[in-house]
Amino acid sequence: MASKQNEKKLNSWLKFSSTRNFYPLADKMIPWFMGLAIVLTLIGLYMTFFVVPPDYQQGNSYRIMYIHVPAAWMSMLIYLLMALYAGIYFVLNVKLADMMAGGLAITGAIFTVIALWTGSMWGKPTWGTWWVWDARLTSELLLLFLYLGYISLRAAIDDPNRAAKASGLLALVGVVNVPIIYFSVTWWNTLHQGASITTNKTSMATEMFITLLVMVFAFWMYTIAIVLMRVRNEIIERERDTSWLVEELGKEK
């Protein structure tokens, strides 16, 4: 009895793994996530500029952290998420999982660029230099290269099935290597004894923490919305000859 119910539950979820059922769902979800993203960003930015006090050491320049930190977090999380979807694609052979992975890669790369860019804008007034070969900066840069490799491999292969499998394999190989790269870069930095930077870990004030949290949620909502939009476009492109899509698009007009 219970197993039958579970099976039913599973089936009702798996229903959305087909592009045909997912498309209308994505259509409904996008405005909500995008709306939330906009509202949360506005609240977060307001708090960043008007609510949180200036840092007692860094003054106002630290405020860019409220964009930098969430972007850096997202850039790493998205890579894991992308590899997870690649794994799902390999195990269950669900086309949608591959589309999700492909959509996530672009957003991940953008967040990596934002993290690097805002980081160097913060570094100039604080450390007096745009760039240092610090372990964290270097591994973030390598993460960007991994994203770019993934995106270019996808773009270079015309057949969508082969592109999906090849890039999925690359994502899985990459995710095995990410910890190795991270630890070797950390060790390399301690060996070289270059410009050693210690971020002073003073306990964060409550309002600073809340602001950061709001921005993190805003970035999450944006990621979900934009990835759904990319997946929706991908579905339209790949299934443009199917009758259900023509019907679906007709409804929208």
Binding site: L142, F145, L148, G149, L153, V173, I180, S184, V185
Partner: peptide, 14 residues
């Protein structure tokens, strides 16, 4: 080169 060079980094470092 784009796919492989980032993965070469640990070997280069050590």
């Amino acid at each position: 080169s784009l796919l492989i060079l980032p993965l070469f980094v640990p070997v280069l470092i050590f």
